[in-house]
Amino acid sequence: MIKKILGILKDDGECVYKELPNGMKMRIEDFDLWYGKTQALKSVNMNIKKNKVTAIIGPSGCGKSTLIRSLNRMNDTIPSVRTEGQIWLDGYDIYDDTADCVDIRRKIGMVFQKPNPFPFSIADNIYYGCQVNGMKVDKDEVVKRCLKQAAILDEISDRLGDNALSLSGGQQQRLCIARALAIEPDVLLMDEPCSALDPIATAKIEDLIHELKKDYTVVIVTHNMQQAARVSDYTAYMYLGELIEFGKTKQIFENPKEESTEKYITGRFG
């Protein structure tokens, strides 16, 4: 808030605008991130195409989660984090002084590794995002639409008043996806959304990602390379905080340019 005010006072309130190439939703440009003195991301450059699924893979601790959390500034909640570089969303830098985290997160939804529904009713969980953003919408309609989009409406349509914690793990995760859709974001970030789920629930969520692609730009972090191959259009391979290789999923999996990528994909390390 103060940043925003200062930003407006500093110049005439105009943010820097930079036209992104056609079909591109987000662009990460020379992005560095430090936790205290440890550098977790080293000069990452990456493009995220509109209405495509971009997967980020790599061994544990390579900075995948850090990168995806940077995309909607969730890392701001960690006190010791410091960043350099830009991340553009539709031509605006989300790390600009004038940018407001709350607005950014409103445009870029996120689904976390562990299902984390609020201890409210299912309907209230969905409606929460609309409520805090002051969206004037019909609650029943939003709840139905989002649950349907998340392919869970049929299973729980008669339990909308129940506490969300009474759902199974897979259902909770799809509820979290539905919740993220309620605020109608442009981009949906998924941080290992299936790592706590069994294969059946995982398959359901993968199908769902295929569906969501039509309306949203999806970025997904995953440990599971088969999953990346199945769901994504583009794949980024990270190692030790650096983006080693980025390209079409088919090309990365069938014909990787870097030796390290090939080793990781064929399971020889990581």
Binding site: T77, F112, N116, Y128, V132
Partner: peptide, 20 residues
């Protein structure tokens, strides 16, 4: 987790504290 979930939905810190 719940705080993260709320913030990721575009809630402000105070909304998160008050409601979650």
């Amino acid at each position: 987790d719940l705080r993260d979930a709320s913030l990721a939905l575009g809630a402000t810190k105070w909304q998160t504290i008050r409601k979650v």
